[in-house]
Each structure stands twice: as C-alpha cells, then as structure tokens.
C-alpha cells in the first residue's frame, strides 16, 4: 500500500484526537474536583515528560544536569521562556566543549 495512505491515516487520527474534545466540549466545568484536575494536568504532563528525560537530552548526563540546573535557577527568577531555554542549552554546549 502506498506510503501516502499511511501518512493520511496518521494525520487524520491525530487531528481527530485533538479536534473532537476541543470542539465539542463547550460547557463550563463546575465540579471543584474536575476544575482542580484540569488546572493541575498541564503541570503534571510537563513534569512527567521532562523528568527524567531532560537528564538524557544532550546525550551526556553531566552537561544535561548542568543545563537543567541553569534552567531551574533562571526559571525561578521568572526570566522569559526564550532566555531560560537558550541559556540552559548554551551552558550545556559550553560545558560540553571542556569535557
């Protein structure tokens, strides 16, 4: 079967998974538990995706941990996203030159 059919199927399924809840769900949620759940979900997803994957992200655990530490400190100081991201990556790169 042509690769095109596979690509179209992937795209269609991925779109439906995104579109159906986002488009059909119009009610404002009143239940305090579900409000809380939906409020906490994004942070939970990002945390689970980041840890422990971030420690393997550069292919070297030392530079990954150094970059992570820089990101945590700068994020705590509420610096903009792009500054945190580039500084973390930049420090991992610089450390990588020396080890």
């Amino acid at each position: 079967m042509s690769v095109f059919i596979y690509i179209a199927t992937m795209a269609l399924v991925t779109y439906l998974v995104r579109m159906l809840p986002f488009t059909l769900f119009r009610k404002e949620i009143r239940s305090p538990f579900f409000k809380g759940l939906l409020h906490y979900i994004p942070y939970a997803v990002l945390s689970a995706m980041t840890i422990p994957a971030i420690f393997y992200s550069t292919g070297d655990m030392k530079t990954s941990i150094a970059g992570t530490a820089v990101a945590v400190v700068l994020a705590y100081l509420r610096l903009p996203l792009i500054v945190v991201a580039l500084a973390a990556s930049g420090s991992a790169f610089l450390l990588g030159l020396f080890i």
């Binding site: 945390s47 971030i54 292919g59 992570t68 820089v70 994020a75 705590y76 903009p80 990556s89």
Partner: peptide, 21 residues
Amino acid sequence: SVMSAMGLLLYAMFVAIIIPA
C-alpha cells in the same frame, strides 16, 4: 556538539513554564 546541546531546548522551556507556577 551544537545538535546535542539543542536537545535541551524544549525541556528547558518546560522547566521555565512549571517552576514559576
């Protein structure tokens, strides 16, 4: 060396979103 350091970008951005919150 540049490619591997860029692997950290997205994760660092996640950190920048969750830590202030």
